[in-house]
């Protein structure tokens, strides 16, 4: 076991949660992410191998699918993010590549991103001050990339109307957190 300590995207030893009024903004660091891209002419064997590994069907454009271990998020034509618990899947790229073989290209993406979960009954009021996506109409599982305060971000509706994940490039963590807090205070 290596002896290097990890830091959260916000630069602390442990992830933070902030509460403003009815909203909580939680830094989520316990998920690993790999990007998975089908290789040419391998659509069918890829689908088979993916189903075997992930246990769930590949979601369609604009969607995510959550299983007991893996969550899959469509990110582009023939491309998905595959999320799994960091504690058991830290070397997620190797795990996925092992299972998918030459049917797909796999890259480790875990530390490329910072994830903030926004929860509360007024979560949509907050989302509609952050990005052009029709948050009020997003159903559970809807997932789409968009822009939040000039930062390209993936927005996933974890629970319709009250729980969203915002996933932005890790280096923007401080700026994203600041933007989310300002928005939460604005609607408090």
């Amino acid at each position: 076991m290596h002896d290097l300590a990890a830091l959260t995207p916000l630069g602390a030893a442990a992830p933070r949660t902030d509460r403003v009024g009815a909203i909580s903004v939680t830094e989520v660091t316990d998920r690993a992410i790999a990007s998975v891209s089908t290789r040419n002419g391998k659509a069918k064997p890829f689908a088979t191998a993916a189903k075997a590994l992930f246990g769930i069907d590949l979601p369609a454009p604009g969607q995510s699918a959550a299983g007991p271990v893996w969550t899959l998020i469509w990110t582009g034509p023939d491309q998905w993010f595959a999320e799994a618990p960091f504690a058991t899947h830290e070397d997620i790229a190797a795990i996925a590549k092992d299972a998918l073989g030459d049917t797909a290209s796999v890259t480790e993406q875990t530390d490329g991103w910072v994830r903030f979960d926004i929860e509360g009954p007024t979560a949509v009021d907050m989302m509609e001050r952050l990005c052009p996506l029709p948050a009020r109409r997003m159903k559970t599982g809807a997932a789409s990339r968009s822009i939040i305060e000039h930062m390209g971000s993936l927005v996933i509706c974890r629970a319709e109307g009250r729980h969203f994940s915002v996933i932005a490039p890790r280096s923007f963590a401080g700026s994203m957190h600041h933007a989310l807090m300002a928005s939460a205070r604005s609607i408090a």
Binding site: S35, S37, R39, N40, G41, Q79, S105, T107, E108, Q109, T110, D111, G112, W113, P169, R170, S171
Partner: peptide
């Protein structure tokens, strides 16, 4: 038709 997939990993690696 080239079998090539690309993705940015600027952020993922220090």
């Amino acid at each position: 038709d080239m079998d090539v997939q690309i993705i940015s990993t600027t952020e993922a690696w220090a």
